[in-house]
């Protein structure tokens, strides 16, 4: 038989099975497939809610992809008897005030933990972290009794206090991480240059830790915004927040999915915006410590 050398090479290449290039292609396809599955699983409920929020009450039970969108749901949820506006206001105030108090206090605590030798420092840090692992259901009853006795039940102040307790340990640990990343020499240089401790913190530490503070603040806001269990038990009328407000749409005529979805979007929207901001600063914050 007379075969050209080229076809010989091609044959032997085929016989040797999968080449490196093919392997790469297969693994790429596999990865893409898995990622696609993950995306579908995670996004389907959100897509469903987005569609439901713009459907009429009649359409909502049909899995129609094409329908005439309506904005009436968003109007309805703010009207009687739901008054979602009140809940939105409550949620905003509670989450906002929580962050406004949590971040400065946590920053001071984190700075002390990071820069000073404190008696029982490790123990304190561990205890602070440990409070995060106490299941909320376990302590909710004492909270209820306490708040009932001092008249904090169903008040925003009560919720703010609870949320502070929830976010503080997290905020302290997170901000401590950022401050640890600031080289000690930078602070010492500022002190020798003529700053007091307060000036060092204001002029050097805070600007350098700013991405970290912002990230921590947004995380705290999200936690407070989404907090459900305490709000469920400790409020019933005046201080009801958005996540609890969702229960309103469970009416005698069944679950009002279209209204529920509209309210759901109102809850989610700020989270999307914050996630966009956080994405930018989170990376920046992580690398900030590397500046030498």
């Amino acid at each position: 038989m007379t075969t050209s050398p080229t076809s010989d090479q091609q044959n032997s290449g085929r016989r040797s099975g999968i080449t490196g290039k093919q392997k790469k292609r297969i693994s790429w396809a596999l990865q893409s497939f898995l990622i696609l599955i993950a995306i579908i699983i995670m996004l389907t409920p959100i897509v469903w809610i987005f569609m439901a929020a713009f459907k009429t009450h009649v359409d909502v039970y049909q899995l129609k992809l094409f329908f005439t969108p309506t904005l009436e749901n968003f109007g309805l949820v703010f009207d009687a008897p739901y008054y979602l506006g009140d809940k939105l206001l409550n949620s905003t105030i509670v989450a906002f005030v929580t962050v406004v108090f949590a971040i400065p206090i946590a920053t001071m605590a984190a700075y002390s933990f990071s820069r000073f030798e404190l008696r029982g420092e490790t123990a304190m840090l561990v205890i602070i972290l440990a409070t995060q692992f106490v299941p909320a259901v376990v302590i909710i009853l004492p909270f209820f009794v306490m708040f009932r006795d001092i008249g904090l039940l169903d008040t925003r102040l009560g919720l703010i206090l609870v949320n502070l307790a929830i976010v503080m340990p997290f905020a302290i640990w997170m901000i401590k991480g950022f401050i640890d990343g600031i080289p000690m020499e930078t602070e010492e240089a500022a002190m020798v240059d003529g700053s007091s401790r307060i000036q060092v913190i204001r002029n050097i530490v805070l600007p350098m830790a700013a991405p970290g503070l912002l990230t921590a603040g947004i995380f705290c806001f999200i936690i407070a915004w989404n907090e459900f269990l305490f709000a469920l038990i400790l409020t019933n009328k005046d201080a009801v927040t958005l996540p609890i407000g969702l229960a309103l749409f469970k009416a005698e005529e069944g679950d009002l999915w279209n209204l529920l979805s509209a309210a759901g979007i109102i809850i989610m929207l700020p989270m999307f915006v914050l996630a966009l901001i956080i994405r930018k600063y989170f990376v920046q914050g992580m690398t900030m410590g590397a500046v030498r």
Binding site: P183, E185, E188, A190, V192, D193, N203, P207, M208, V291
Partner: peptide, 12 residues
Amino acid sequence: AMVFQNYGLYPH
């Protein structure tokens, strides 16, 4: 006035 080994500059 002090000059540090790692410079101790203010990166921001």
